[in-house]
Amino acid sequence: MSEPKWLDEGEMAAWRAYRVSSILLEGQLHRELVDAHDITLADYEVLVRLAERPDHRMRMSVLAGEVASSKSRVSHQIARMQRAGLVERDNCSSDGRGVYAVLTETGMAKLREAAPTHLDGVRKHMIDLTTEAQQATLAKVFERVGAMLAATTDD
């Protein structure tokens, strides 16, 4: 086994700043949604993805990919959200194995209620702290990282 290529000081500073701040940011956004609306950040992400679809439905396997989660984890999450009345499951008529997650009216109402809190948090804790150029750089960097990781994931 070869010796690992250690990070230099600048690389370590970038990695640690990303790692700590991303954990803190996600935790803060999650707490704000739970405290104000009794909804998790993960649930909010699911509601957003479903709301963005014209028919407010998405195959569970596609949804799992879009929220960077496993099919099993999304299935459990959808079951919990279904009990809360936020989503429903619907079988795919063209494929007996396929299942859709479908946004309910209650789910859309919860999304509309929670969106201002979430957007205010994203602005306060990230967007307002960065310039447009920094935002463009962040987008390019993490689109590249995400694309590479998505290409190597075979869930």
Rank of each mutant, 00 (worst) to 15 (best):
F142M: 06
E32N: 08
H76I: 07
G85N: 02
A109F: 01
H118L: 12
L33M: 05
A147M: 07
K124W: 10
I39Q: 08
P116C: 01
L29W: 10
L33D: 03
R123A: 09
I127D: 03
L47T: 03
A136S: 10
A14I: 15
E132P: 03
H56Y: 06
G85K: 03
S70T: 15
H118K: 09
D95R: 12
E143A: 11
L24Y: 07
H30D: 15
Q28G: 00
A14F: 14
R97V: 03
R73I: 01
K110G: 00
D155S: 09
L129E: 10
R112N: 13
E52W: 02
L86E: 05
E3I: 14
T104K: 03
V34G: 00
A151R: 10
G65N: 14
V46S: 01
A139Y: 13
V141A: 05
G107M: 03
E132Y: 03
E143R: 15
A42V: 07
R19Q: 11
T40I: 02
L50Y: 09
L149T: 07
R144D: 06
G10F: 08
T117K: 01
Q134V: 10
D90Y: 10
M12E: 14
T131R: 07
H125M: 10
M126L: 15
D128T: 04
Q82R: 14
S21M: 10
E66V: 02
L149Y: 12
S21V: 02
E3K: 09
L50F: 07
R31G: 00
I23W: 14
M60Q: 15
G65Q: 13
G27C: 04
D95W: 12
K71S: 07
A84P: 00
E113H: 07
D155N: 11
E52V: 01
R89D: 01
K110E: 06
W15R: 12
E9D: 13
A64Y: 08
Q77I: 09
K5D: 11
A114V: 03
A17K: 14
N91C: 00
D8V: 06
V102T: 06
L138P: 00
I39Y: 06
V67F: 05
T131I: 11
I39C: 06
M12L: 15
A101D: 02
F142I: 02
L119F: 12
K140G: 01
T117Q: 01
T152A: 11
I23L: 13
W15K: 11
M58R: 07
G98R: 05
D120E: 15
E26S: 10
D120S: 04
S93I: 14
M148F: 13
D38Q: 14
D35S: 11
H76K: 13
Q28F: 10
E66L: 14
T104W: 09
T117H: 00
V87F: 04
A14W: 13
Q134T: 09
V141R: 05
G146S: 11
D128M: 06
E3W: 09
H30M: 04
A84S: 09
L111I: 05
G146C: 04
Q77Y: 01
E132V: 14
E45R: 14
V62W: 02
A101S: 11
A115H: 10
G107P: 02
L119T: 11
L47M: 03
A101I: 05
E88L: 15
L138Y: 12
D154Q: 12
R53Y: 03
V141P: 00
G65H: 11
G96R: 15
G121A: 04
R144M: 07
S75L: 07
T40R: 09
F142N: 08
R123Y: 15
